[in-house]
Design a protein around this nucleic acid. Structure first.
Lengths: 207, 207
DNA sequence: GTTGTTTTTGAACAGTGTTCATTTATTTTT
DNA sequence: AAAAATAAATGAACACTGTTCAAAAACAAC
């Protein structure tokens, strides 16, 4: 029964082609300006056929943003060799911010847009496991910091959320253009500068 | 020439009716699900007539979100009587978070969506003065904190941005549903808890 | 070569923002 | 009061959107 397997592979291949086309268009035009018909045109199929591979547009962009989490996670992996948890924590912050500023559209899809997350909410269970993984990496690092005597008096879970919020807040204000208008002259450096202020606060909390 | 003035008033009145209708629909369905035709139906005018009062859909929602800034600013005014700048700073944080959680759709429009901010970028000058005002209120408070000996070694502008980012990060992760999936069991309290962690960090920085 | 299954199609549905020639209403001038 | 001029409102039309589905084409099995 090699035929069934080959058909399976063909199907998977076309699914992949749809994803590649969707990503290409999305990176140059954004999610809402990328239409099903655009994707269909690019792969030279009819619009209707896309619905045999994906339930709806949200499912396509959910599949796409999973790749973003893998990218982010693989960048984090260079920190495995950093044994000092405070240094690792700061490294995570730098990598997170750098990833967001280098891939603003992907970051937008992963952490700001509601398109892909709605797909998660609607699908039963299977809880945004990509994002869950990245957040847990932060949590265990902060646990280690606490175990080694830092952040005395703070609660691990809420502090982790706060740290995530701080970096997310800076990059999302930048990506969604709220800096342009309030800090016009410092646009390009303000996130880096803010991050340095944050690091110096973290250091101060440890002594 | 009382007639010209009356016509001016009539025009202004219809403009206001469009805004009220837009706000009603937007609060119950969101921006993208509120169409020009919906608004036109509600005020019993034709779709085309709306374009005599607003350049496009973005302009309508830009006008709407200005009201949000006025609301936020007026809530901040109760802090005028708080003379201790550190207490005022924390009060601002609480009010900001409370406003966001009580008016998530308005907050979304003001600080997350790109619809209204694009209108600002496209229109010449007149730089998002509403948001500018609120941010400057934060900056002057932090300046006072620095003048009274807090936040030693920190730079005012970057620190202000960091503080804004922290509260914005928490509420925007909540509003855009990234807590649901990563902190499901604590969804409802995590922002308040995170804010308390933040306050205790701010206090620690002052001693 | 016929039957059965899978894949692909493209028209159709119900909607979107926006434009604009035409009609309707109002004001000004004669 | 009638005519001309101006302003406001209309609704059809344009070029799109996501999604569905009966019909057609393609392929596999007997």
């Amino acid at each position: 029964m090699g035929i069934a397997e080959r058909k399976e592979r063909d199907k998977e291949e076309l699914r992949e082609r749809i994803l590649v086309a969707a990503k290409t268009l999305f990176l140059e035009k954004g999610v809402e300006k990328t239409s099903i018909r655009n994707i269909a045109d690019l792969i030279e199929y009819s619009p209707g056929s896309i619905y045999h591979y994906f339930k709806d547009k949200n499912e396509i962009f959910h599949a796409l943003h999973q790749g973003g989490f893998q990218q982010l996670m693989s960048r984090m992996e260079v920190l495995a060799s950093v044994s000092n948890p405070m240094e690792r924590l700061k490294g995570m912050g730098s990598i997170y911010v750098q990833f967001a500023l280098e891939n603003p559209d992907m970051y937008d899809l992963m952490f700001i847009k509601d398109a892909p997350i709605l797909h998660v909410s609607n699908s039963n269970e299977e809880q945004w496991k990509e994002g869950f993984g990245t957040f847990n990496f932060l949590r265990t690092t902060i646990q280690e910091c606490i175990q080694t005597g830092h952040f005395r008096g703070h609660e691990e879970e809420a502090l982790s959320f706060l740290v995530w919020s701080t970096v997310h807040g800076m990059v999302s204000l930048r990506i969604r253009r709220r800096c342009e208008v309030v800090l016009a002259q410092r646009q390009d450096t303000i996130v880096k500068d803010g991050l340095h202020e944050f690091f110096s606060i973290l250091d101060r909390l440890s002594s």
